Amino acid sequence: MFQTVLLRDHMDHSDTFASWLHEQFAYEFVAQALPDWQREFKAGQNDGNWRTVIALENGQLLGGAALAKDDSPDHPALGPWLACVLVAPLARQRGVAERLIAEICSTAKGIGHQKLYLHTHDRRDYYAKRGWEYLESFHAWGKEHSLMQRLL
């Protein structure tokens, strides 16, 4: 059985998770080299820019999700954001993503936020089935994205 924990308490997984994100969402990192992203992501665990929850099982990283202050250059006035949702292929179909997302929602609510935003280019139906409301489409990073929100 996996557990969810704050990445800041398990920083030995920070560079690995950041590299997974850099690879999975490469279109967002065209202008940012992996070492620069790893430094930003690591710093974000302490400054609150990328507050991340990860899933671990027997010390193995399964995935993670972040509460981000800013995750869309096209929507600088919105936030906070559910971001960086990624589960390793070997851990999919086990409820890992849903639990990580629930942890981020709970964290955001616990610190006083009333709603969260996210953007996705390919998982709109997944989030809609889980209570996220579609707001609009926008073009960023060479792809069409759906902007969504969820009341907490």
Results as ranks from 00 to 15, higher is better:
R8Q: 08
E57H: 11
A55K: 03
E98A: 12
T120A: 08
Q93L: 11
K109E: 08
V53H: 13
D12C: 04
H22F: 01
D70E: 14
C84H: 06
D15K: 07
Q3D: 04
H113Q: 09
P76H: 06
R150N: 06
V96M: 03
P35H: 02
R99S: 06
E133W: 04
H121F: 14
G142E: 07
A77E: 14
D15S: 08
Y27I: 02
A97W: 05
A18T: 04
K115A: 12
E144S: 15
F25P: 00
P35C: 05
D70G: 14
R39I: 10
H145M: 11
N49P: 00
T120H: 00
A128Y: 03
V53D: 12
Q149S: 15
E23C: 09
A18V: 05
S106G: 11
M11D: 02
A108D: 06
G59K: 04
F41Q: 00
E98C: 05
H113A: 02
Q38E: 01
A128V: 10
Y134T: 09
P80N: 04
A88N: 13
D71G: 09
V87A: 04
F41T: 02
A97T: 03
S146G: 13
A77W: 09
L151D: 12
A91C: 01
R123A: 14
A83Q: 00
E57W: 03
P80W: 01
M1Y: 05
E98T: 12
T4D: 05
E103G: 14
W81D: 02
F2Y: 14
N49T: 14
Q38L: 03
Y27A: 10
G112S: 05
P89N: 02
G48E: 09
G79E: 07
W37P: 00
Q45M: 10
S72I: 09
F138D: 08
Q60P: 03
P80K: 04
D12M: 00
L152E: 09
A108S: 07
C105M: 13
K143W: 08
A88V: 04
D36K: 01
A66K: 01
L56S: 09
S137W: 08
R39G: 02
D47R: 03
L147M: 11
E136K: 11
S19N: 04
W81M: 09
L6G: 10
Q38W: 05
G63P: 07
C84A: 15
A33S: 13
L116Q: 08
I101M: 10
L21C: 02
Q60I: 13
A140C: 12
L90T: 10
I104R: 01
K129T: 03
E144F: 04
V30C: 05
R124Q: 15
L7R: 05
H113C: 10
C84E: 02
A77Q: 13
P89H: 02
D12Q: 04
A68Q: 11
R123C: 03
N58C: 11
D74Y: 11
D47W: 09
G142V: 09
E28Y: 08
A97R: 01
H119S: 13
C105S: 13
R150H: 13
G44F: 04
S106I: 07
T52M: 10
T107R: 12
V53R: 12
R130E: 08
K143R: 15
A68L: 06
P76M: 07
Q149L: 15
V96D: 05
Q3K: 08
W141S: 14
T120W: 01
